[in-house]
Design a protein around this nucleic acid. Structure first.
Lengths: 146, 146
DNA sequence: CTTGTAGTTGACCAACTTGGTCAACAATAC
DNA sequence: GTATTGTTGACCAAGTTGGTCAACTACAAG
């Protein structure tokens, strides 16, 4: 199992947008600074997220990015599917006709069982959920410092 | 989520060994033919599995490979860990000190939750389990052909 | 209508991983 | 000693990942 850093970046960016939801638009330069994500890389991620309808972007001065929908309606699964590439768990899963071991292949079920479990967790966690957790984690860090 | 083909190959090889457990040793050439795995590639996989104690290998004529333990004691998790590479879910999980977003990082928990779920499924499935499923799947193919 | 700002797009890159091959070597049975 | 079979190391092509850069486009303000 492996989560591409893009996805982690994307989640952090969305989290940043959720936290600054009162502002009409957040510039990618600001997100980049706050979240320590290389800006030109972040730009591409935001572009992809925008194309997949998770973010609304506006150019020019006063431009920037904002969540396109309620943070509770954006799940990690969506981010994963948007940024995570093709994510084909194993070749024969979506091209079973090309699998020459099909005559009695017991592991296909297991691999898709795994995939389902992952999807269930990711689709069950929204940016809103994560924002709550993040704030809790931050509070913990602060109280530990005192 | 993505299962490297090596792991799938490895599982099939072990399944083949389990099915031929009555023979003292199975040659990699035979496994290669039956399971449609390129032999020289299969050889490396078997070597790795042997180093991790899942397989016992003997050279020379009458040589070959055999399961080193009971099929019920070999889980897909073991195969995954043996062949699947480093499998670091995301950098900061095992090197949290290198994570500069640590001050309030809510997603680390989610990523490890995902990892745990995957491990639970993989560790809960043994080669013996899979052999049963495989035979059932084969029976189904045969009955469908009639 | 120009100017500055900020997102968009395409080309490009280094590093790494994956799946795979090949030749030489070592152990062992006959 | 010879044939057989696993072991080891070197090597490879192709694809992916994380990342950069320059040019381009939209838009607000003056």
């Amino acid at each position: 199992m492996h989560i591409p850093i893009k996805v982690d970046y994307g989640v952090r960016a969305l989290l940043d947008l959720a936290e600054h939801a009162q502002e009409p638009a957040v510039r990618s330069a600001d997100i980049s600074l706050r979240q320590h994500i290389p800006q030109s890389f972040l730009d591409r991620l935001l572009l992809t997220l925008a194309k997949d309808g998770l973010v609304r972007s506006v150019r020019g001065p006063l431009g920037g990015h904002a969540l396109a929908r309620d943070p509770a309606q954006v799940t990690l699964g969506m981010v994963m599917r948007s940024l995570g590439g093709n994510e084909t768990i194993v070749g024969c899963l979506e091209a079973p006709e090309s699998c020459n071991h099909l005559a009695g292949c017991g592991q296909r079920e297991i691999w898709s069982e795994v995939e389902d479990a992952v999807q269930r967790i990711l689709d069950g966690t929204s940016i809103a959920d994560l924002l709550v957790r993040t704030k809790a984690a931050r509070a913990l860090v602060v109280s530990a410092a005192n």
